[in-house]
Nucleic acid binder design. Structure first.
Length: 521
RNA sequence: GGCCCCGUCGUCUAGAGGCCUAGGACACGGCCCUUUCAAGGCCGCGACACGGGUUCGAAUCCCGUCGGGGUCACCA
């Protein structure tokens, strides 16, 4: 049984690079009919773990990356929180000590630093002298009575080579002398990542450790620990990290202000920011930006689009397949086809996937996705009335592929506002209504035509306007833009006849009247 | 700096010695369509980091150079 895992720290947000790694783990497990485990790396003992964890779990739920064991889904390998396993870890440290694979060390940070600097000065690689290693209980007592604090270090092999096979990088070999005597337990008894990690992977029956490339350098020491404890080794796959937009540096949530200088990134950010603002969300660029998964959920992206983009970030099937359903991804995913080189995060490409997925979404589900934005804006009741829903459906249908993310519905607010509340785009008003001398007169005449027509369906309206243009002997552009500004307040939008049909006769006429009044005629 | 990893269009990638005049996608540019804005259609721009080998033949194999990155914690 294949078992993979992802081990997030409860930081309060889900990073897009982390999700990519988690997703690969998830896909690999699902592909093999295995299980995916979520384990919480909370050894730092922060205060509000539950609170900081929620956005992360929520991100996984939103994306549909379900876990078989972990928070909320207790399994046979509980607990899934590292903070709850301290005695277990300490027992492992004791075993390593017993087997002579670890030792108590009493060097002070200053002494260590001095050794390190001396090595650097002599241009030789640093390796701790083990000068303050306590070999017996008597040594320990002596050093402790001298006021020293002891940590436990790994007693790494100082000859030979650690060899392992990585599913992505191939055969790996690292000389043991390149490994330091890493600390595995602090003076206060708490334990460090490398140790906890190995024990958890063993306890949870993890068969495949799929993680980002920056952990490659942790692998040898983890193998040392695992072997020392007599654990079977998992298989390893180090996937390349996700790089920054436009560079090969590792993507970091701390460099958002720098990414904002990237035009594409900025554009996606601004678009999301505008939507957040329109629904009254207070956001900060640190936690609400295209590096954080939450951003996409709130702005109204589709999870399928995000996943499709992410799966292609470092993996591909062949030379042309781009669109995959989740089932297809599961069926086709393999570590062998994961790339070695880091891939830069490109939100424009993600956007392109979003566009395609949104285009393919039928009217009903699209309407459902879009609805909450108008409700948050206070324009539609909760639950929406049948009449409101009907209009919304019409707007969604008319706007069609102009709605790229659910929040884009906010571009069509004017269909949900009272007639006298529709704001005018002043420059459009000027250009289409005030400036052309004939505009007001034509608008008034066309209003009269509308008032007498009986069918307000889009095709009929189009015929009506065409006839109007002919009888008046004008260009279509002389009237159509004026009408658009009159009824929507804006220069842009979907088809004018659809707009008129959706508003209906009464509202259309009312809005034109209001415009005529504003024109002072 | 030590150790390690990586190197095909701006970006994501296909490519396992001849199928490569290097394919696809995003982005970009142009044209068409068009009542605006989108969408769509067509066309275009654009890469094997460099240098040596090996071979009849190299983007693919070998060596070197250069470039980029990761990591060197009592963080994870």
């Amino acid at each position: 049984m294949v078992r993979t895992r992802f081990a997030p720290s409860p930081t309060g947000y889900l990073h897009i690079g982390g999700v990519r790694t988690a997703f690969f783990n998830w896909l690999f497990a699902r592909h093999h009919g295995g299980q995916f485990i979520l384990r919480i790396d909370d050894t730092d003992q922060q205060r509000n773990i539950a609170e900081a964890l929620e956005p992360i779990l929520n991100g996984f739920r939103w994306l549909g990356l379900n876990w078989d064991e972990g928070p909320g889904i207790e399994g046979p390998h509980a607990p899934y929180y590292q903070s709850q396993k301290l005695p277990r870890y300490q027992e492992a440290v004791r075993q390593l000590l017993e087997r002579g694979l670890a030792y108590h060390d009493y060097a002070t940070p200053e002494e260590l630093k001095a050794e390190r600097e001396a090595a650097e000065k002599e241009k030789r690689p640093f390796l701790y002298s083990r000068k303050w290693m306590a070999e017996s209980a008597a040594d320990r007592a002596r050093l402790e009575s001298a006021g020293r604090q002891g940590v436990v270090r790994l007693k790494m092999a100082r000859e030979g080579t650690c060899r392992f096979v990585d599913h992505i990088r191939g055969e790996m070999a690292v000389a043991w002398t390149h490994e330091q005597d890493h600390v595995i337990q602090r003076a206060d008894g708490t334990v460090l990542y490398n140790l906890a990690n190995v024990i958890d992977d063993y306890d949870m029956g993890i068969t495949h450790v799929i993680r980002a490339e920056e952990h490659l350098s942790n692998t040898a020491r983890q193998i040392f620990i695992a072997q020392g404890l007599g654990y079977p080794l998992p298989e390893y796959a180090h996937v390349p990290f996700v790089a920054e937009p436009g560079s090969k540096n590792k993507l970091s949530k701390r460099k958002i202000s720098q990414y904002l200088k990237n035009a594409d990134f900025k554009k996606i950010y601004d678009h999301g920011q505008a939507i957040a603002q329109a629904i009254g969300l207070t956001t900060s660029a640190d936690t609400f930006n295209p590096v954080i998964v939450d951003f996409y959920e709130r702005v109204g992206y589709l999870p399928e689009a995000i996943l499709n983009y992410l799966v292609l970030l470092g993996w591909s099937l062949d030379d042309r397949s781009e669109m995959f359903t989740l089932d297809e991804m599961i069926a086709n995913f393999s570590l062998e086809r994961v790339n070695k080189a880091p891939a830069s995060f490109d939100c424009k490409k993600l956007w392109a996937f979003q566009e395609r997925y949104m285009q393919a979404l039928p009217v009903e589900p699209k309407t459902a996705r879009v609805l909450p934005y108008l409700q948050q804006r206070g324009l539609l009741a909760q639950p929406a009335t049948a009449h409101q829903l009907a209009r919304l459906r019409q707007v969604v249908q008319a706007a069609n592929e102009r709605i790229k993310v659910a929040g884009d519905i906010l571009d069509y607010l004017d269909f949900f506002l009272a007639d006298d509340q529709v704001p005018y785009d002043e420059s459009a008003f000027e250009k289409r209504l005030r400036k052309p001398p004939e505009a007001a007169g034509l608008l008034r005449k066309f209003r009269a035509c509308l008032a007498t027509t009986e069918s307000f369906a889009a095709p009929a309206l189009e015929g009506l306007l065409n006839q109007f243009v002919q009888t008046e002997g004008i260009q279509i552009g002389q009237i159509i833009h004026a009408v658009r500004v009159a009824i929507t307040g804006k220069a842009v939008g979907f088809g004018l006849f659809d707009a008129l049909a959706i508003l209906g006769k009464e509202q259309s006429l009312a809005r034109i009247d209001r415009t005529l009044q504003r024109l002072g005629s």
